[in-house]
Amino acid sequence: MDLIPAHLDHLVLATPELAATVADFTRRTGVAPAPGGAHVGLGTRNFLVSLGGSSYLEIIGPDPEQSEPDGPRPFTVDELPSARTVTWAISPPDLDAAVEAARARGYDPGSIRPMSRRRPDGTLLEWRLTDGDTQHPSGLVPFLIDWGASVHPTATGLPVTPLLELSASAPDPDEIRPLLSAVDAELALSEGPLGLTFTVDTPRGPVTFG
């Protein structure tokens, strides 16, 4: 199996302390993530690093410039004791068809909903993604995303740390594998404590994050 999944769009590194995690990434890799933008109303903002090609890393956490959101922040960042790779996303050629196919195979990746944010230069980005209670809670089964007519984040001159490997472990890998197949996703998966791990190439050598 390839160590980098096909159609990988991005990895999500969630954190309760955004500035500290961005500083830690910079210290460990020698590469400073670029500001992505705020998710208005959700109470979060992100920083981005290209993983090579059309894949990237999203570092997401609470936005101190926003008021408290009405509901929980995305990716349960408020409940995390520290930064953790919580999930990943793939970009299928046809989002709607991929969702229908997954449901036909016995897994519902969730309803498709629109989202948006503005880049620091004011450009509005709009995309659609799967979201909902039917997604597997492990985070190991990727959510699906479609950027539509928006310029993909990797096309904006992001700093680059090429992805060398993405892998995961779960107490019961055989529970997860059929769900990965349902969304046409491949992931190196072994038995062990629940978690996602990725390794990037950097000016300071390979660096692994969990």
Rank of each mutant, 00 (worst) to 15 (best):
R118G: 08
D24V: 02
P35K: 11
A23S: 13
H39T: 00
V99A: 03
W88H: 14
P114A: 12
G110E: 03
S54W: 13
L194H: 13
T208E: 14
D184R: 07
R73V: 01
R84I: 04
G30F: 08
E126S: 14
L196G: 14
A38L: 02
E58H: 01
T85C: 15
T156G: 00
T29L: 09
G41T: 08
E17C: 07
R204H: 15
V49M: 06
A149I: 04
H136F: 10
R119P: 08
T156W: 04
A185P: 10
G37C: 04
L194K: 10
P178A: 04
N46M: 04
H39W: 01
R73C: 01
V77C: 03
Y56S: 06
P193Y: 09
T130S: 03
E175W: 08
P35G: 11
V22P: 00
L125M: 13
A168R: 04
I59Y: 03
V49L: 15
T154R: 04
R45T: 04
W127F: 14
F75K: 00
E68A: 15
E186Y: 10
L158C: 06
I90L: 13
G139Q: 09
L11C: 15
P120K: 01
G139L: 09
L196Y: 13
L187Q: 05
T85M: 15
L180W: 01
Q66I: 08
P93E: 02
Q135L: 14
D94H: 05
S138H: 13
I60D: 00
R73P: 01
S67P: 15
G122H: 06
T44F: 00
T85G: 14
P5N: 07
P120H: 03
E79C: 08
P81C: 10
T29A: 09
R204V: 11
P74I: 00
D63Q: 07
E175K: 09
M115G: 14
E165Y: 06
S82Q: 11
T130M: 04
R119T: 12
S181L: 05
A89V: 07
W127S: 01
G61Q: 01
P69S: 02
P109Y: 03
